[in-house]
Write a protein that binds this DNA or RNA. Structure first.
Lengths: 257, 257
DNA sequence: CGCGCCGTTGATATTATTCAAGACCAGTGG
DNA sequence: CCACTGGTCTTGAATAATATCAACGGCGCG
């Protein structure tokens, strides 16, 4: 369905962006990472984290707008967002784009390459970001030796599928208002889970990107944000969002047409 | 996002439908199954197929309309469609439904339970069907012993994620006409892959179910099928579809707005 | 300080939905 | 065998939602 067709393979055959830094024994170690319990090593014992680190080769730094990988690039690694945020974008044969994911620290990026061994979508940084690289080369071997890794990966794959189904529900059966409300609540919950304020945050996507994510045009997103602002649901100043009336926002999502 | 919330857990705590039959040495063996190369054991060696069979306990027969599992049911097994077809349906807190998948022989059903260990969606038979049951109990153990299984499962999970992203592209950025054309072409390709005619087939879903799948209302689906019929793209007689002009159907999907 | 992207807002156009009526079809029971 | 019934499908007309087109304001960056 909706085949994304023959992606032009970029000449960058590694699919990996330039600025890779050796991980060494830096503070980037999972053991000291604040996102540990949201990320792949959630629930890992100390020794298991050490084992995981044996296959973690490097980290990648990305400048705002830079691509982590492009559509069609060979699937060489999974990436865990450490700092910043990324979007993933699927494109159709005729060039239409759909933002399929908004990834923040602790999220895994690149799972879309597991089926065909090529990335079906592209991933790029919405702000200066940093990702931990999990090379796929020895991943399956490592999974066999480290059941916690196997289990964690299954958990994350399952969550991704569930989340995508939730997104299909949103795109297939919700009105514009409900979509935007659901989007804001989703962001809110995810920021909370990461120890940030659930009420105040900064959007990292443009109105157009949000629109693409939600299946709406940028003007519609803009209008609705204004409307929510008027209605006292949120305060909007450019990309700065402050949620004022969380309950009513929730109601908006759950209203039965 | 778009949380599917607290699913009422059905009193059927097994999540498995009634008519289970022991698999024994019946002709249901993967080695003799026509869908083998589309299904989990794709690429398996003979011995690996034997190994896989050691964890395949039973099969399930479903009558048209019967549920394989309901939303909220504990995740006890994966299912491979052997005969017939199923739909998977995700529902929101307020009761809206979204058909998230249409599964035919060789397809795996139930992956949505891997994240939370509960099925987020429901699966039910669109016609009298039969599924092979892959209990999850020993699945991870077995994967470690049988790399081919591990690899196959990863492949299928990755394909599911890619397909879902394709669906998000369809729902988020295509017009009604394009969606329906893409749907018909997808069915066509999948029937062909299974050795059936790519030009003539019978829809197993009602207009309403197709609409739910494509994010459209049943009337819209009906109108468009009529329009395609008028336009000489397909012949439609109820659920019987005959594709007349495949190239033009493809063009319809790829038209740039 | 100017240029380009981003965001807002209004007017209008288009698309898909909603509401409504009726046809068709398969299965059921008289 | 036929009539009945419920679910499904088709089609039309009116309506609502969202997209499109267009103009402008503002902010940030070079």
């Amino acid at each position: 369905m909706a085949s994304t067709g023959s992606h032009p393979v970029s000449d960058d055959t590694t699919g990996v962006a330039p600025n890779v830094v050796p991980i060494g024994e830096s503070r980037a170690h999972c053991a000291y990472c604040g996102m540990r319990e949201l990320c792949l090593p959630a629930g890992f014992a100390t020794t298991e984290i050490e084992d995981l680190h044996r296959i973690l080769g490097k980290r990648v730094k990305l400048r705002r707008g830079e691509a982590l990988y492009r559509a069609g690039a060979p699937f060489t690694a999974l990436y865990a967002v450490r700092i910043g945020s990324l979007k993933t974008v699927t494109l159709s044969d005729d060039g239409r784009e759909q933002v399929t994911g908004y990834r923040m620290p602790g999220d895994l990026v690149g799972l879309d390459g597991m089926g065909t061994r090529r990335h079906e979508s592209a991933a790029s940084a919405l702000e200066d970001s940093e990702c931990c690289v999990i090379p796929v080369e020895h991943l399956e071997t490592m999974e066999r030796l480290l059941p916690a890794l196997q289990h964690g990966l299954h958990r994350i794959l399952g969550q991704e599928i569930s989340a995508d189904h939730g997104m299909m529900l949103l795109l297939g059966s919700m009105h514009a208002e409900e979509r935007l409300a659901a989007f804001l609540l989703d962001l809110s919950a995810r920021y909370r889970a990461r120890g940030y304020s659930a009420r105040e945050f900064v959007l990292r996507m443009t109105r157009e990107e949000i629109g693409s994510y939600l299946g709406l045009k940028l003007e519609t997103v803009s209008r609705l944000l204004s409307k929510f602002h008027e209605g006292g649901l949120v305060q909007v100043q450019g990309r700065r969002i402050k949620i004022i009336d969380m309950p009513r926002l929730r109601q908006l999502v759950n209203r039965r047409t």
